[in-house]
């Protein structure tokens, strides 16, 4: 084949460009840390990366969500536990009052029950980040049912109404929220309740346990005819029997509250476990993505060195290749 100057140049030019491209690609891989810098370099791999990223993003969405609600659930659980302690105290006071026939400080016990009742109401009004934890989905001050006799913008309020034969103190706890469940998605299409509703925790429409406490308070503080007990007055047998009935009721309610706290704690723990699982899965997905996406530095550096050497030798040879022709030797 006849070789011409341009034929040599064409071939040399192509080789040089290819080597330059390889060196450039190697440098790019090292500086960016990525195997691919644009879509068309490896379409399938980049779509695989994209799909892995979608899974990582989805997991991180659920992880963030679960971690956040976990804190809120801790707050709810803590408030419910404190409230349960008060209920146990009240139950114990009621047991004491019903067992000691000669006990002559009944109004004092009543005052202790009242004190715990106000504490219970305070605990029931616990909020987390401005959200009342036992108020269902009406969990902000503005959204509460503020109808009379409500005087404040808290979901549970101890109000004083006109005395009645059944409720000589006139005390009543009103609930201004609702008993709707609040949900979080722990995975696709898999919701989980994240709040303790007032009816589940406190019974009835959300105030049953408070009614029982008020009954106990009333029985300790008032006689059957609705008049106040004196400080040295002893409870009669009939009142003791009624009080024992209240003890049974509040025991049942305390048990239900404990069960609800247990379920709630278990649910929180399960959500935390799911969050950990998702985190581990995300770590594996990120590893897979990294294998596809990230530059293998030692391999790339070695390859770059080889390409640079080839490029330099090629330049060296090229400078001699086009150096001379017969014209240089003619005189």
């Amino acid at each position: 084949m006849r070789i011409t100057q341009n034929a040599q140049a064409l071939s040399y030019n192509r080789s040089i460009l290819e080597l330059q491209e390889r060196v450039d690609r190697g440098q790019n891989k090292i500086t960016t840390g990525l195997n691919y810098s644009n879509l068309s370099e490896q379409p399938k791999t980049i779509v695989d990366i994209q799909q892995l990223q979608t899974l990582v993003d989805r997991n991180s969405r659920f992880i963030t969500s679960l971690d956040e609600v976990s804190n809120e659930m801790y707050a709810g659980e803590f408030a419910a536990e404190k409230l349960a302690e008060k209920v146990q105290d009240i139950r114990q006071l009621a047991i004491d009052a019903s067992k000691h026939t000669a006990y002559d400080k009944m109004p004092v016990l009543g005052q202790q029950v009242f004190q715990r009742l106000t504490d219970m109401v305070r605990d029931a009004n616990t909020d987390f980040g401005g959200r009342f934890v036992f108020a269902g989905t009406k969990n902000t001050p503005q959204s509460l049912n503020m109808a009379p006799p409500s005087t404040n913008n808290l979901p549970f309020e101890l109000v004083q109404e006109a005395p009645t034969p059944d409720n000589p103190s006139g005390l009543r706890v009103i609930f201004k929220g609702n008993t709707k469940e609040r949900m979080v998605d722990k995975s696709i299409g898999s919701p989980e309740q994240i709040n303790i509703t007032a009816n589940d925790a406190f019974g009835g429409s959300g105030t049953e346990i408070f009614d029982t406490v008020i009954d106990i308070y009333n029985k300790m503080t008032y006689r059957s005819d609705g008049t106040l007990r004196t400080s040295d007055e002893v409870m009669n047998v009939e009142d003791q029997r009624i009080l024992q009935g209240y003890v049974q009721t509040i025991s049942n309610q305390a048990e239900r509250l404990d069960e609800e706290i247990g379920r709630y704690a278990y649910r929180r723990s399960r959500l935390e476990a799911i969050s950990v699982q998702l985190t581990e899965e995300s770590t594996r997905l990120k590893e897979l993505r990294s294998q596809l996406e990230d530059t293998n530095m030692p391999e790339t550096i070695l390859q770059l060195k080889r390409d640079q050497n080839a490029y330099e030798y090629s330049l060296n040879v090229g400078s001699r290749l086009f150096q001379t022709s017969l014209l240089d030797f003619l005189r």
């Binding site: 108020a135 269902g136 989905t137 009406k138 969990n139 902000t140 959204s143 609040r182």
Partner: peptide, 10 residues
């Protein structure tokens, strides 16, 4: 009137 309801957001 249920600001704590997140159904639509979910």
């Amino acid at each position: 009137g249920t600001p704590g309801d997140n159904t639509i957001a979910r």
